[in-house]
Design a protein around this nucleic acid. Structure first.
Lengths: 140, 140
DNA sequence: TACAAACATGATCCACTTAGTCAAGTATGT
DNA sequence: ACATACTTGACTAAGTGGATCATGTTTGTA
C-alpha cells in the first residue's frame, strides 16, 4: 500500500525538517547513511521533491538540500501523492451493475479513510515528536 | 490497493449469496457473463473460495458452485485476505531509528482503518442492499 | 588551476506481482 | 456416448517498483 519510495521520501523530509535550523545544507550521503536508504535511489526521490518546490539544492562541494517550506504546511498525504501514491484508482469491470457500484462505494470509502489518516499528519507533527523522543533518549 | 482478483471474488460471492435460495448451483459461465469477469480467471478464484470452505462445487452437467456459509458470517475483509490482500506489510529500512518507528506507526494506522472499513461490511449487508436496489429498479 | 565533493539528468535493468491463458483430465446428467 | 462443467497444474504477458549506471555540471578548496 505504501511504497518504499514514499517511505524514503518521508524519512528524507523529516531529516531535513529536523535540521532546518542548521545553516549548511544536508547532503544525500548523510541521509543515505543515517537512514539506510540506497544512495542512487535518493537521487531520484529528491528530483521529485525539488520539482514539488519543497527543497532547494545547493550544488558543488559542501552542497546538499535545504527545506524551503514550513513543516506545518506539508502533510504526509501531499508527500505521498507527489511520490506517486495512488495515481490509479480502484479496479472495476467497467460495467455499472448494482453489484459493481456497491463494491465501488466500499473501495472508495476505504481509500477515503486512508487518505484522511495521511492528511492528518503534518511534517511538523513528526518533527515535534521526533525532537521530544531524542530528548527523552538523551536522559535515559 | 484493491486488486482485480479481490474485486472479482467479491462480485462472485455476492452473486452466489443473492441466488442462494435457488436449488440449482450457479455455473462460472453465468457469473462470467453477468459481471464481465474473464472466464479462466474465475476458475482460479473459485479454487481459493473452495479452499476457504465457503463454496461447494457440483461437478458434471448442470454443475456449478453453491454458497455454504451464511452471508452474515462473512466480511469483505475475510474475502479480501483469502484472495491475498496485504500478505506483505508496510515497507521499512529495517532500522529502528525514531524516525523509522514514527512512520511505521502512521502506516499501521492507515492499514488499520482500511481493514476496519472492510471488516465492517458483511456479505449479507451487500446482499440486502442489492435486493433492495433490484426491487427499486423494477418499479421505476 | 586542478581536484574532489556533490548535485543533475537520462537511460537502463531486474525481480516480482498480477492478470490472464492453455491444456489435459475427471465427474455427471441426459 | 456425449456434452457440460468443474479440477489441476503449468505457463505467458505486461506492468510496476526498486535499484543501478554513466556521464555531465557546478563549486569550494588546496
Amino acid at each position: 500500500m505504501i511504497s518504499a519510495r514514499v517511505h524514503y521520501a518521508c524519512l528524507a523530509m523529516l531529516e531535513l525538517a529536523s535540521r532546518s535550523s542548521e545553516q549548511a545544507p544536508v547532503s544525500l550521503r548523510e541521509i543515505s547513511d543515517q537512514h539506510g536508504v540506497p544512495g542512487p535511489f535518493l537521487v531520484q526521490i529528491f528530483r521529485s521533491l525539488r520539482a514539488a518546490g519543497w527543497v532547494q539544492s545547493v550544488r558543488g562541494s559542501q552542497g546538499g538540500y535545504r527545506l524551503i517550506v514550513r513543516p506545518e504546511d506539508l502533510s504526509l498525504l501531499e508527500i505521498a501523492e507527489m511520490m506517486g501514491y495512488q495515481d490509479s484508482g480502484n479496479p472495476g469491470t467497467g460495467k455499472t451493475t448494482p453489484a459493481e457500484m456497491m463494491l465501488q462505494e466500499v473501495w472508495e470509502e476505504m481509500s477515503r479513510v486512508s487518505r484522511e489518516v495521511l492528511s492528518s499528519v503534518r511534517l511538523s507533527d513528526l518533527k515535534e515528536r521526533f525532537q521530544r523522543d531524542e530528548a527523552t533518549m538523551f536522559y535515559i
